[in-house]
Amino acid sequence: MRVALFITCVNDTLYPRTGQATVALLRRLGVDVEFPAQQTCCGQMHYNTGYRRQAEPLVRGFAEAFAGYDAIVAPSGSCAAMVRDVHPRIAGRSMGRVPRDRVAEVVPKVYELSEFLVDVLRVTDVGAYFPHRVTYHPTCHSLRLLRVGDRPLRLLRAVRGLDLVELEGADECCGFGGAFAVKNPAVSAAMCSDKVRHAADTGAEVLCAADNSCLMHIGGTLERQRAGVRTLHLAEILASTQDDPHGSGWADGERSPA
């Protein structure tokens, strides 16, 4: 099985540690994951802001970069959902500028990380160790577009030492929404205010999600408020082991930002 990592432009640029964790985790599970260097971005920002035509070359580029792989794993629910849900629609409306057949070929191979682990590798216990109190935010696109269900929770429950606590109002949006956070800053901040309050109420030290764009928003607010809760991508928790609890074996550079 040829497995490709779709890192996503946000992780690539701002959260390389999440990518490094994903690679370490998959290799530990026996997957020789590759990184197709031609990949860039799924086009979600353009499409969701109303620039569908600008997203077209990115959709075409995605289909080209990942052609021929058996599985494409993305540590982002939102970007995986963009490819699965929207790429065929963009191709369909592109008047041939984006080849529909190539998009149709690559789209079913795309998995969000927890889907790949649970559905393809059929593991829930990935041998991880993370001795901290953690609460999980499901993120809207994982929850409602991909319908990953309890897969991330099953993975987290199997992590040794991890104390998983429930987040009140977990299924409510954190208020990021890409352009929404900038175009409607007041409502976005009001939404995040409730999210971080619920997170702090759990007594958890870590708020975990499978999407760094939402975590950038929630984490940025938590940090500004000095709330004492940090955010961490699911992959980074699953990559941690008893032998290497801080990821010094796989992470490069400094520790993940709080």
Binding site: P16, A37, G220, T221, R224, D252, G253, E254
Partner: peptide, 21 residues
Amino acid sequence: AWTDTREVPRIPEESFRDWWR
């Protein structure tokens, strides 16, 4: 509109793609 209520993310020393290369 972003920094009114949130910190900006830290930029890492190296992108994932450069690290992979």
